[in-house]
Computed example of a mutant assay.
Amino acid sequence: MNIKVSIIIVTFNAEKTLKKAIQSVLNQTYKNIECLIIDGASTDSTVDIIRKYNVSYISEPDKGIYDAMNKGWKQAKGDWILYLGADDELVPNSIETLINISSDADVVYGDTILKFPSGNTKKRGIQDLSLLKYYLCSSHQSFMMKRCIFENLDGFNSEYRIFGDFDLIQRAYLKGYKFKETKEVISIFYVGGVSTNNIKAEKERYKILKRNKSVRYPFFICFYVAVKKLLLKIKHLYS
């Protein structure tokens, strides 16, 4: 296929995990891929690691993760864009799987394997698309979007520090872009990042739901989600 996909990895002092992330991109069965790394002027060996691979990169200070992610899509040459965490991985056939369902779609996505600090793993099944009014129906590492959507929606809102990815995907959903899903696993997501901080995360979710006018009572939705996440965290601690 001639469809070009840009996989963007945003990094800052990611020397411990970056190799696996890059290798998972280079090992894709789908070959028309651009790997682009946006580094926030790391002070460890991150840039030295990047230079060992045949990938494009920039390394300079940024104003936060979503500022860096905006730099990514603006630099990208692909027709489609997927963002991968520096501590996450793609399964080998993930891009091929997404491309195969991309006809007549604007956003494609699939399942995710969650990997916890304990080493335990769990498959996160896709939830109903309508839940995008409240939260992501799959992990953002398993979403691939057309580049034109980033342009049309002015990319990520860099005011957000935790859920800028959810905000952008939700805005695409509310604007009526066409979503398609697959039950195949796309990515392996390592649980434990900033979005697991319940109080800050739910405050930001509240701002997004209110600004995007996606639900009638954003406070009650955020309270419900916070309690649900807390109960899940307790469950995983004792599983």
Rank of each mutant, 00 (worst) to 15 (best):
V225G: 00
F143R: 04
I221T: 11
L114S: 10
L90Q: 02
G78D: 00
K77C: 05
W73N: 03
I101A: 07
Y217M: 06
Q127K: 14
S59C: 12
K175S: 09
G72T: 00
M144Q: 03
N54V: 15
T121I: 14
G164C: 01
V107L: 00
K180R: 15
T182S: 12
K52L: 12
K20H: 13
I65C: 01
I3D: 08
V227P: 06
L26E: 03
N2F: 14
K133G: 06
V215S: 08
V5D: 05
V215Q: 08
I221C: 06
L209M: 09
N212S: 11
F220K: 09
D128I: 15
Q127L: 07
C148V: 14
V194I: 05
N54L: 15
F220Q: 05
S195E: 05
T121H: 08
G85W: 04
L209K: 06
I162T: 11
L90F: 07
I113A: 02
D79K: 12
M1P: 09
K77E: 12
M69T: 00
F166H: 01
I234F: 07
N93C: 10
L82T: 00
D48V: 11
L231Q: 13
F12Q: 03
G155N: 00
S118C: 12
G119K: 13
L209I: 12
G164E: 04
I149N: 10
F163D: 12
I58D: 11
L237P: 02
R147Q: 12
I149L: 15
A68D: 00
I186C: 06
Y53F: 15
Y30P: 03
I37P: 02
